[in-house]
Simulated assay, not measured.
Amino acid sequence: MKVAGKHVLITGGTSGIGLATAHALIAKGAKVFVTGRRQEVLDAALRELESASGVAADVATREGRSATLAKGTETLGGLDILINNAGGVRAGRLENTSEEEIEAMVAVDLLAPILLTRAALPALRASGEAAVVNVASGIALVGAPFYATYAAVKAGLAHFGEALRRELKGEGIHVMTAYPGGTDTPMMKSNRAGPELGFSREPASAVAQAIIEGIEANAFEVIRGGEARAKMIALNRDDPAAVDERFLSLKPALEDAVKDHAAL
């Protein structure tokens, strides 16, 4: 699928990977609509994007999803590509993570994209050539300590996408899952883990470019992190105990580095 001329809705499109993807799509001739929870951040993003439009809405709420889809499809004049990018995280030991924080991650990272996609299907079917892109996380492929709930919801999102891709096969709607690794975004500002703990960071623009290349290639998935990530995924499949031991040696430093990582 070529993205030029396509009508694209990006949740969480006011910063980080979402904003970078909006920039890259506009540069390729797509028409873009973005959402974000805070009006002032949305306004700043729209000034930066110039040709995009958007709405301040929380897709974790019924009202936010309704406003997102209604205003997005009306403004764009249809919908060809839905990018479920909005997300939130709270790292730390499970017993130190509040019930409210756990519920928030489930709501924004898993429930919101499922329900928004469900609501968007009629508009996507009308496109004739449509796509859904779910932005998961590398942690969905290799679970990391102190990210138990985040790993769970992102893995759930990935399998939702896989099952839905098969459900919609032959019906004009393709589904792709993106697995970013560590990315230099506002969401990562409170994470102090560096490359020595497995948290190398790449620019959001690189992830955005890979997502667009994946859309245009009708790829099933886009996995970031290069050869190192590929080796870790393979090791986790073939010898998960070895990955357990690797994380055991990193646990004290990793726990300290991510204990304040929160973006909800």
Rank of each mutant, 00 (worst) to 15 (best):
Q39A: 14
Q39P: 05
Q39D: 15
E40Y: 11
V41T: 13
V41P: 03
L42S: 04
L42T: 02
L42D: 07
A44E: 14
A45N: 10
A45Q: 00
A45W: 00
A45C: 11
L46A: 06
L46M: 13
R47D: 15
R47T: 12
R47A: 13
E48Q: 15
E48A: 15
E48K: 15
L49F: 05
L49I: 00
L49E: 08
E50S: 11
S51M: 07
S51C: 13
S51G: 13
A52Q: 11
S53M: 14
G54K: 01
G54T: 07
G54P: 04
V55E: 10
V55W: 11
A56S: 10
A57W: 11
A57T: 04
A57D: 05
D58S: 09
V59R: 08
V59T: 09
V59C: 08
V59S: 00
V59K: 01
A60R: 01
A60W: 04
A60C: 03
T61A: 01
E63I: 12
E63N: 06
G64E: 02
G64P: 01
S66I: 08
S66F: 12
S66K: 13
S66Y: 14
A67G: 12
T68R: 03
T68C: 15
T68I: 03
L69V: 00
L69N: 04
A70T: 14
A70F: 07
K71A: 12
K71E: 15
G72N: 08
E74P: 13
E74K: 10
E74M: 14
E74C: 10
E74L: 02
T75L: 14
T75K: 09
T75A: 15
L76A: 04
L76Y: 02
L76P: 02
G77R: 07
G77D: 11
G77M: 01
G77K: 03
G77V: 00
G78T: 04
G78S: 06
L79A: 01
D80T: 05
I81K: 01
I81R: 00
I81E: 06
I81V: 13
I81F: 04
I81T: 05
L82S: 05
L82E: 05
L82Y: 04
L82K: 09
L82W: 02
L82V: 10
L82M: 11
L82C: 12
I83M: 08
I83E: 01
I83P: 00
I83G: 01
N84R: 07
N84Q: 15
N84G: 09
N85Y: 06
A86V: 07
A86E: 04
A86Q: 02
A86C: 05
G87F: 07
G87N: 07
G87S: 13
G88P: 03
G88R: 01
V89E: 06
V89F: 02
V89Q: 06
R90M: 09
R90A: 10
R90C: 11
R90Q: 14
A91G: 07
A91P: 07
G92K: 02
G92Y: 02
R93Y: 10
E95A: 13
E95I: 09
